[in-house]
Every structure is written in C-alpha cells, then in structure tokens.
Amino acid sequence: MARIANRRQKIGGWVLIIVLAVITFVYLVPFLYIINTSFKPWTGIKEYPPKVIFKPSIGSFIRIFTSRTVYPPGEVPTEEEMARMKWYERIVYRETNEEVVRLGDLPRRYLNSIIICSISTIITVILGTITAYGFSRFKVRGKDDLLFFILSTRMLPPVVVVIPVFLMFRFLGLTDTHIGLILLYVAFNVSFAVWVLKGFIDEIPTEYEEAAMVDGYTRFQVFRKIVVPQATTGIAATAVFCFIFSWNEYAFAFLLSRKIAQTVPAWLPYQMGVLGYDWGAAAAGTFIFLVPVMVFTIILRKHLLRGITFGAIRK
C-alpha cells in the first residue's frame, strides 16, 4: 500500500513539474520573441506569420550601434569600394542598401548608464552600510520615526517629486549632468539600502563586536574588521539591487537628461521614429540592454531572491 501511495505521489510530482515547465516557457515567450526578432535578417523582420527558424543575422545589432545614410537610388559601390568595406559595413549594405557614416548614439548612452549606475551604487552602498550599522547598533532617539522617514522617501512617486527636483537642478545647473543623476539615484536608493542592510546587520550577533571590543578594539575598528566582512553577502546583494534599480530607472533620466548624461532607458524608446520603424534594431537594442540584468539575476539568483523578499518583509 505504501508503494502504491508513493507511486501516485511520484506521478503527481511529474505532472506538477511538467505544468511548471510549460508555464515558465509561456512566461518567457516575450523574451524569446525579442531575441528571435533581433537576430532576423532585414527581409525577415516583417514577415507574417513570424518565422521561428531562419538564418540568423547580426545586421540589427550593427544598425543599432551605427548611424547610416541610404545610398542614392541607382548608385552602387564599386568593387574596389566593396573590397575596402569593413565586414559590418558589408552586412549593412547587403541588407538595407545603406552606408555606415559613424558610430551611433547607443554606445555613448550605454557608457552613461554604466558610469552613472556604478558610481551611484558604490556611494549608496557605503552610505547605506554605515547608516544601517548606526541604526542597528545604537539607541537613537526617535529611531522608528527616522527609519520611517527614510523608508517613506522611497514611496514618493517619482513623478510627484520630479517637478521640484527639476526646478532645483535647473537652478543648480545639474540638469543633464552625470553628477545630477548620480546624486538623485543615491538619494533614491539609499533608503532601500539602509533597510535591507539593517536587516542583514541585525542578523549578525552583537556578541562578535562585543568580544572584539573587550579584546581591545575601538567601535570603528570593530565595524571594519568584524561587521563589514560578515555583512559582505548582504552588501553585495544590496549593491546588485541598487545597480539594477538605477539601470532600469526611467522617469528621472527621461526628464533630467537630454543628451550628455542620458541613459539607455531614456533614449531607446524614442528611436522607433528615428530608426524609421526599424524593428530589428529596436529589438536588438532592447536585447542588449536587458542582457546584463538577466545575467546578473541568473548568476546571483540566491542572494537576489532573498533580497527581494527580505526587503519587502522588512518594510
């Protein structure tokens, strides 16, 4: 009888696995569609019904990275010119009959995203760690109110705050600068960082620090030698979070940057018109932008999942 019950359980388990696998696959279809589209050759992009199997081309990626002009009708590059063309210029010419003029706007925007997100993440994590330690270990008068204040700044809809921030930045000349966006992202992420890191630091038993203090170390030395090493996982997870948040941020970037400091999310959605409804290039841009986050998520999944739930539960 035990055997029968076991077998029934096993079958049930398999059914569950299959159901979950199907759900997951269906869930990922939009991603698959984007990947599929971004690798389609120029002629295949607007085929309907869409094909799943085709000869992949990286033409779309080249187009999103470059600025191009169309050859005038009838004008054809000579054989000599063809021979001098770089490999990517040849692909572009063959697919869309265009000439590559220069590097496009994307690399610049991509670099902006990386610079702004990295620097703001580093500052956020440093500020977040020390503040979280302060709140975790010391009696602070009105601590709960202060913590609530820190948290509540995160609940403000960006669209509400953006008007005065816009005015302030304009007054200070911070509009469309890297520093402006970095400051803003630090301010908006630090509340989250404090909350999550406070949770991690709360979990480190205070006895470790007390032992070290009795052993002849000052508070600050203890913080550096005992607390920070033990909170490394938490700090790393928080850093990834802050990075992803600022990487994905749209409202501020869109309103407070025009060109110099513009990040990818503020730029990419407006290229549809510019690209002349080049679906392939749009898909390729999307793909390139999403890939780092996907990789991060999959590599750091354990910390990340813990962080997401943890951050929420704490609040």
């Binding site: 007390e210 009795v214 090493p229």
Partner: peptide, 29 residues
C-alpha cells in the same frame, strides 16, 4: 570603554569570528 578595561569575556555562543581561522581568532586580541 570595554577595550581599556583589560578583561576577557567568553560568551555563551563562543563568538569565534567566522571569517577568520582558529589562529587568526587567537591572534585577534
């Protein structure tokens, strides 16, 4: 401060620093 009192404290849960080896723990004070 505790650092200056020159006393030793053995805690209930041992509080060995998890990121150090045994030798590093002994050297720490």
């Amino acid at each position: 401060s505790p650092a200056l009192r020159d006393v030793a404290f053995v805690f209930q849960y041992y509080t060995l620093y998890p990121h150090y080896t045994v030798r590093q723990n002994l050297e720490f004070p």
